[in-house]
């Protein structure tokens, strides 16, 4: 199973050269932090996650988002959050988090059979 050798050569997977110690350079540079960008595409709509980018500070993150994610009039408002501040639920909790709601069909309007004569409901 682990003995996979993928021989496809589109963008993806020309095999990397084997790392030789002299070749394997790691810069010591401290990179700009990563930010998550949320964009409101139209007044009245929610901000939606558009992607991420790097910026040195919050102001620059917003401007980079303007330049990167709104080149085609995609946005009217931008939120930027440094990625490290995003807290996410754990996929391992998915069962206990989300499955208990699957049997509560009575929360949905289609659960109730009403005569056709009832209007506006």
């Amino acid at each position: 199973m682990m003995n996979i050798q993928i021989k496809k050569f589109y963008y993806g997977d020309i095999p990397d050269s084997s790392p030789s110690s002299s070749n394997d350079v790691r810069s010591t540079e401290n990179p700009w932090p990563l930010w998550e960008i949320f964009i409101r595409s139209k007044q009245g709509l929610d901000h939606k996650h558009a992607g991420s980018l790097h910026a040195a500070d919050a102001q620059m993150a917003i401007e980079n988002a303007r330049d990167v994610y709104t080149r085609r009039q995609e946005g009217l408002s931008i939120w930027a959050v440094e990625s490290k501040f995003i807290h996410a639920s754990n996929p391992d909790d998915a069962e206990m988090f989300y499955e208990p709601s699957t049997d509560k069909v009575y929360r949905h309007p289609t659960f109730y059979d009403l005569p056709d004569e009832v209007k506006h409901m």
């Binding site: 095999p15 790392p19 350079v25 540079e29 990179p31």
Partner: peptide, 15 residues
């Protein structure tokens, strides 16, 4: 990190 990927490109490791 992006830095790491770019390093790999520059060292000739990544294609």
């Amino acid at each position: 990190s992006r830095e790491q990927m770019i390093d790999d490109l520059h060292s000739g490791k990544a294609k």
